[in-house]
């Protein structure tokens, strides 16, 4: 490893992230296969829609702890908006959409990422609750169950959209990001661009882990 790399995530965080990411992707793909007749073909490799349903349901069981751990891990750093800096950042959209001379410095996660956290955390819980009721609906009031399907679809709409934003910004949109969640190490320059304030705080407190 190159010298001077900065540690931004530990292995537990990365395991949780990938558990959630992979389960989420499987859920979205299998869900798509059941949601649209035109995507029914997705079920072909797994031997039919019934299997796809089983895959979807049991992947959901992986997604549930992943999401819960993710919320536990990240809610402090990504779940709380800090003012005024986050507001400042929002005003300039983090410099993603137009040229900004000086992007306000943010903590480990910028408000965009925080919004993503909230979307995933909130609608993730919605997906879990509605999904479980959909899986075991007998005994619940009909009118309640009916809305579970609608909310599940709404959750999908939100998470599906954010997923692509996340994918883009985590890869080609912000080069160097992938390593943050693959190896846990990023370049100092990446960290300075992405989370300058955090970097400063870590350095001041002496907690920053830098590769030798």
């Amino acid at each position: 490893m190159k010298k001077g790399m900065i540690k931004v995530s530990d292995s537990f965080e990365r395991i949780v992230h990938w558990c959630m990411a992979i389960s989420c992707i499987i859920l979205m793909i299998s869900g798509l296969g059941m949601m649209f007749h035109s995507f029914n073909f997705i079920a072909i490799p797994v031997g039919g829609l019934k299997n796809l349903k089983l895959i979807h349901n049991f992947t959901g069981l992986v997604f549930i702890p992943s999401l819960l751990f993710a919320i536990l891990i990240w809610w402090k750093e990504a779940g709380i908006f800090r003012f005024p800096e986050d507001l400042e950042w929002i005003k300039v959209a983090g410099g993603y959409l137009w040229h900004v001379d000086k992007v306000p410095e943010t903590g480990k996660y910028n408000p965009g990422q925080k919004a993503f956290f909230w979307a995933v955390a909130f609608f993730g819980v919605v997906m879990i609750v509605t999904g479980l009721i959909m899986w075991f609906p007998l005994g619940f009031p009909v009118k309640l169950v009916r809305w579970m399907y609608t909310l599940h679809a709404l959750g999908f709409f939100v998470i599906f959209s954010f997923f692509f934003v996340h994918l883009y910004l985590g890869t080609v949109g912000v080069p160097g990001s992938v390593s943050a969640i693959l190896t846990g190490w990023v370049t100092r320059s990446w960290a300075e661009k992405q989370c300058p304030k955090w970097l400063k705080e870590m350095e001041e407190s002496g907690k920053l882990e830098v590769s030798e």
């Binding site: 679809a153 959209s161 934003v165 883009y168 080609v172 912000v174 370049t187 320059s189 990446w190 300075e192």
Partner: peptide, 30 residues
């Protein structure tokens, strides 16, 4: 919601592409 979710996903993918080619990726190279 069904069409909307496809539309939104398509919109985001398209938006990302446009962002990349117009605005370009964020420079984190140092």
């Amino acid at each position: 919601l069904k069409p909307l979710s496809l539309l939104a996903a398509g919109g985001v993918v398209g938006g990302a592409f446009l962002h990349y080619i117009i605005h370009g990726p964020k420079d984190t190279s140092g």
